[in-house]
Structures are given as C-alpha cells and as structure tokens.
Computed example of a mutant assay.
Amino acid sequence: MLIDVAIEKVKGLISFFEGYMETGFLEALEIAKEIAVEMDIGATFRKRREIKRKKQYDENPDDTNIATRSAEESFRINYFTPVVDQAISSLTRRFEQYQGYQKIFGFLFTSETLRSLDKDSLKSSCVNLEAALMKDKQSDICANDLFVELKFLQNFMPKENIGHVEILNFLKRHDCFPNASIAYRVLLTIPVKVASAERSFSKLKLLKSYMRTTMTQ
C-alpha cells in the first residue's frame, strides 16, 4: 500500500469510529443479542437490586440519576464508549507520523495536487522538502532546482489526474528531472507499517529467552 492511500484509509477508519461511537451502540446491541441467542445465552443485561435510600439535603441530583440508570445505559457509558474512544485515540497516536509525511510530501501525491499549487506555495513546499531530506548540512535535492523542474512539470505532464507511481514512470521516460525523480523515489519508499518496535522485540526472545538467562549473565 502507498503512503497516500494509507493516510486516506486511516482517516476514514477514525471518522468511522467517531460516527460509530455516536450511533453504533444500538446496532452493536442487536448483533450481540443475535449471537447470544445462537449460543443459547441470556440476551438481557443482569439487573441489580435497586437500593432505596433517603436523599440527603446536600446530594447532587446527578448522583440519583446514576443510581437509577438502566443496565443497558450503564453498559454503554462504562464500557462501549470507553472502548471505542480508546480505539480512536490509539489510531490517532500510532499514525500521527502520517501527518508529518503529508505536510512534507503531500504536494507530490497526485498530478492534480501538484498543478493546483501557485508559485509561492510550490516554492515553500520545495524548501520544506529539502530541509526534511537534509543530513549533516547536505540534502539529497536542491530546492531551487526542484522548484524549476516541478514548475515545468506542471504543464508538461498529462492532463488527466495520475498518482505518484505514474508520475515517476513518466519522469523515467524523460530523463531531465533529476531532483523530481529523487523526491518521488523517496516518497515511494516510505514504509506504511508502524509495527517495527513490536516485531524486533518479538524476535529478541529467539536469541535471549527467560530459560537461558541466569543471575551471572
């Protein structure tokens, strides 16, 4: 999967969960009841015995509402909403690096996006990309040369909207855009996965397990 497709899918998934938290409880409840019936399990919430007590003069009215809240509503507030909210926050936190990629490489995603930029916006985008690809005061591209190439490329590319893979293939057929070719090659090698830390720690146990570790080591 390409990075721009991954960004679009993650945004769509987050928006789905945001809408699901507002309107999805009743649908999830009906699905859960159908599964419970198939498994021959009671499809009703367990009701607690209501304790009647005298209301104190300094008691908050919301406290009485909590006591008289139905089991279904209590399940929605205490379980369903926190689980969906945790999914939204986890997705946002884990893929927040995508936002940085989009700010740096977003103007190269499609030919339509590239053609929509004016002179000043294109210039600033090239400067930001040069700074992002700089290490030890040396960058893989030159912002001024990239600006000249992309400015010419805006009118030289095919009129239909194409993605960055097609743009790079177009640049390979016309070997006169060295900086643009480097920028698109870097864009196409950005990894989509964010599970490198979990993967390396799982492999660590193959080399050093609890059974091999001793106090002297």
Score class of each variant (00 low, 15 high):
Leu122Gly: 11
Glu22Leu: 14
Ser121Cys: 09
Ile35Trp: 00
Leu187Trp: 02
Lys135Pro: 01
Leu171Glu: 04
Thr44Lys: 15
Glu59Cys: 06
Arg199Tyr: 06
Ile190Asn: 02
Gln102Asp: 15
Leu133Ser: 07
Ala71His: 02
Ala87Trp: 03
Lys135Phe: 12
Ala67Phe: 02
Glu160Gln: 10
Lys151Glu: 03
Gly19Pro: 00
Ser125Ala: 13
Ile31Gln: 13
Asp175His: 06
Glu149His: 08
Asp120Lys: 13
Val165Ile: 07
Pro191Ser: 10
Pro158Phe: 05
Ile3Leu: 15
Asp85Thr: 13
Asn60Pro: 03
Ile88Pro: 07
Gly19Asp: 10
Leu168Thr: 00
Phe152Met: 12
Thr189His: 11
Arg69Pro: 00
Phe25Tyr: 12
Val165Gln: 10
Ala131Ser: 10
Leu150Phe: 10
Gly106Glu: 07
Arg212Asp: 11
Leu206Thr: 12
Ile14Lys: 15
Thr189Trp: 01
Asp120Gly: 07
Ser111His: 09
Ile51Pro: 00
Lys52Ser: 06
Arg199Gln: 07
Gly106Asp: 10
Asp175Gly: 08
Val148Ala: 08
Leu108Pro: 03
Ile141Val: 09
Arg185Ala: 09
Ile14Val: 15
Glu22Ala: 13
Pro61Ala: 06
Lys11Gln: 12
Ile31His: 12
Ser202Leu: 13
Lys9Trp: 06
Thr68Lys: 01
Phe45Met: 07
Leu153Phe: 13
Glu96Gln: 08
Arg93Ser: 15
Lys208His: 14
Thr92Leu: 07
Lys203Val: 05
Cys126His: 02
Cys126Thr: 03
Asp118Met: 07
Phe170Pro: 03
Ile162Tyr: 03
Leu29Phe: 13
Arg185Pro: 00
Ala36Ile: 04
Phe156Ile: 06
Pro158Arg: 09
Ser209Gln: 04
Ser200Val: 15
Gly42Met: 10
Glu130Val: 00
Tyr20Thr: 01
Phe105Glu: 12
Lys151Met: 03
Ile14Gln: 14
Ile3Val: 11
Ala32Val: 04
Leu108Asn: 08
Gln138Val: 14
Lys193Leu: 09
Glu34Leu: 08
Val84Ser: 04
Gly100Lys: 09
Lys172Tyr: 04
Tyr101Ala: 10
Ser209Phe: 00
Lys208Phe: 13
Val5Gly: 04
Tyr101Phe: 15
Val83Cys: 06
Ser209Glu: 01
Gln217Asn: 12
Met134Ser: 14
Glu73Pro: 00
Pro61Tyr: 04
Leu153Ile: 11
Glu27Val: 14
Glu18Gln: 15
Arg76Ala: 08
Thr110Leu: 11
Arg48Val: 02
Ser111Met: 11
Arg46Pro: 01
Ile190Tyr: 02
Arg115Ala: 11
Val194Arg: 08
Thr23Tyr: 09
Asp4Tyr: 07
Glu38Thr: 00
Leu2Gln: 10
Val127Pro: 02
Tyr57Asp: 04
Lys103Val: 06
Ser209Ile: 01
Gly42His: 06
